[in-house]
Simulated scan of single mutants.
Amino acid sequence: MSTVKRAAVLGSPIAHSLSPVLHRAAYAELGLADWTYDRFEVDEAALPDFFASVLDASWAGLSLTMPLKRAVIPLLDGVSETARSVEAVNTVVVSDDGRRVGDNTDIPGMVAALRERGVDKVEAAAVLGAGATASSALAALARICTGPVTAFVRSGARAAEMRGWGERLGVEVHTAPWEEAAHAFDVPLVIATTPAGTTDALAPYVPEHAGTLFDVLYDPWPTPLAAAWAEGGGRVVGGLDLLVHQAVLQVEQMTGRTPAPLAAMRTAGEDALAAR
């Protein structure tokens, strides 16, 4: 008989999150009938009170989405090197003694999603965008890219940020203006980290012999860029791949059970998206 434990995803907005679908599917597959996984609308201002009044010994952990990935750090008892490298925590594990330790499963989740599709090493890459996901993309590229990364960004300030992340993560980062993003596709791997609609105008510029596109969006899917990429014969890794792989790592950390049921979690996510 399993110990009753709670887990949840926090963020704002949170109603769209697929995390409950993925984690509940894992619990069902693992036989953790007494475990629960919920979602809570929590912004930065409300996060300290949630930690103080809600997060007790009955909890196994939390998944965090925007805008909480940096705001949570001062509330934790420890932070992994992976999370500290990008100053972003998307996973909190509550230990039996009450310690709250933060980690980032987005970075190894990206690497795992790429490796599942046969991308282990590349000699160059491009990143579209410069937000929080872009810094995680650079951290993932630090593990698999042996050469330069070009980041296509909208401002000089964003360009400076990306070069700064590159220095911190040990990645050779060059920057280019967003207006030149149509020229981003001549490298083995392109990671699109921008909001829905941002890359739509780039779809006509996908080359005949494209490499791999990792588009972190999953709804709506496919994006016009991903569709054009697939039509041209290029390899496409999608946001659901990332979501599932980072959730697999969260489930393993929170439950202590390995391996987490990747296939069941992916099927649950696909079914949930198809029903929207």
Rank of each mutant, 00 (worst) to 15 (best):
D38H: 12
A52T: 10
D34R: 11
A60W: 07
A28V: 13
L32H: 05
P74F: 03
R39W: 06
E44W: 11
Y37L: 10
M66W: 10
K69I: 04
L76F: 00
V42C: 05
L47Q: 02
V42Y: 02
L64C: 09
H23Q: 11
D56C: 05
A26V: 03
A57K: 12
F51V: 13
E44K: 14
L68V: 02
G31L: 07
V21P: 00
D34I: 09
G61S: 09
D77P: 04
Y37N: 07
L62Q: 03
R70C: 06
T65Q: 08
P74V: 03
P67N: 06
R39F: 09
A33N: 15
A52G: 05
L30E: 02
E41S: 15
H23T: 09
S53P: 06
L64V: 05
A52N: 12
V72A: 07
F40H: 12
R39L: 12
F50H: 05
S80R: 03
D56K: 08
I73P: 01
A60K: 04
L55C: 11
K69S: 01
S58T: 15
V21R: 05
L32V: 10
D49G: 13
A33P: 12
E29Y: 08
L75A: 04
E29N: 11
S58C: 14
D77M: 09
D43G: 08
M66F: 12
T36I: 11
Y27R: 03
F50A: 08
D49W: 11
A28D: 14
D49R: 13
A46S: 11
A60G: 11
L55D: 06
V54L: 15
A28G: 13
L75D: 01
L76Y: 01
L55S: 04
E44G: 13
H23E: 09
H23G: 04
S80L: 03
R39Y: 10
L22E: 01
D56R: 07
E81Q: 11
H23Y: 08
D77K: 09
Y37M: 12
R39G: 04
L30F: 07
W59N: 02
S63N: 15
A57L: 11
G31A: 08
R39K: 14
V54R: 15
F40P: 00
E81R: 13
L32M: 10
L47S: 03
P48M: 04
L62D: 00
W35M: 02
F50N: 05
R39Q: 13
V21L: 02
L64D: 01
W35Q: 08
W35H: 14
A71F: 04
T82N: 08
E81L: 12
L68G: 00
S80N: 05
A71P: 04
E41A: 14
L22P: 00
W59P: 01
A33I: 14
E41R: 12
V72F: 01
R39A: 12
S63I: 09
D43T: 06
W35Y: 13
F50K: 03
R70V: 13
A52W: 05
A25Q: 03
R39T: 08
S80C: 07
